[in-house]
Design a protein around this nucleic acid. Structure first.
Lengths: 159, 159
DNA sequence: TGCAACAGTTGCACACTAGCATGCATAAGC
DNA sequence: GCTTATGCATGCTAGTGTGCAACTGTTGCA
């Protein structure tokens, strides 16, 4: 909330960046809100990993999501019951189980990112071409300076 | 995760913005991670509201956090047990109860935002002054185009 | 004064996350 | 082939979040 309280003590660039980050977070939250009416955050996180890494073994999935295998087993139960993922036998190994997204699961994940990107693009249309260019340059410079976010890390918020 | 999968279909400014947003989210998540070892996300959300709006009535708090008063009552129980907030009687009204952060609660919230701001500032030092200026301008333009995020909305992720 | 509305808590029910210990089937190693 | 390790599922316990309904105490109004 008070992400920029006491902001006056920082340099103007940090200031502007913090402010912009609040706007961006708004986009993220809005894109996530509808999902959270269908799935819990934990479930969506798991679905995102499945969608990105399928086919993935249960144990690997548990590790990537960062939960105990037994917890994951039950989370997959729920995702499977909801029709978001399915367990598939691994050929040549009857001990392991793979998890894959269903079409519905893939679609849900795609919708979220799509919606987010569309909203951002819509906001940018409110700028003149030169201003848009300035945004592009600023964002690129910032991304380069900040470095890629660790995917595992982003996952902690289901992103 | 795949926040920029299929990115090629968008304009370069959206592209850059999405990329930068991933970095920014990384900062947010990192600043939040230590907190989540002490409090649940819901509890932290409530704490943030209390810290920002104290003193606040239970009913108002429930509404702002977006949960049922009975749920909030128990959440406050837990926050109070952990020493993050305290209930204080309202003078002149023995029916209402106010909630206030303890010093510890205020400090926790401040730590999160501080840590986040410091990390962002540190990343920006890796840029030359002119580049930093370009970032400032880009971020300001974006924030202006995107508009202020709705505080209630950001709260959904405890921000 | 008496009654209705209000503020907050508590009992109840249910779902989800979480981890540990256990069990079961399968695979791998000797 | 027998033993051990692995992969997964399940029973158990516990903490949390959630809402509804009921209850207590308080306030406000007629």
């Amino acid at each position: 909330m008070d992400i920029d309280r006491d902001g006056s003590s920082l340099d103007p660039t940090s200031e502007a960046t913090v402010l912009a980050s609040r706007s961006l977070l708004g986009f993220v939250v809005r894109s996530l809100a509808p999902v959270l009416e269908e799935l819990t955050l934990v479930q969506f996180r798991a679905l995102v990993v499945v969608d990105a890494a399928a086919p993935v073994r249960m144990a690997d999935l548990a590790e990537r999501v960062g939960v105990h295998p037994s917890t994951l087993s039950r989370t997959v139960d729920r995702l499977e019951a909801g029709g978001w993922v399915r367990r598939v036998p691994v050929e040549g190994n009857r001990r392991e189980v793979h998890v894959e997204p269903t079409a519905r699961g893939t679609e849900l994940v795609a919708d979220v990112t799509h919606h987010r990107r569309a909203e951002i693009a819509a906001a940018l249309t409110r700028l003149s071409p030169p201003d848009r260019e300035a945004v592009r340059r600023g964002m690129e410079l910032f991304a380069a300076a900040a470095g890629e976010a660790d995917p595992e890390e982003l996952l902690e918020l289901g992103l």
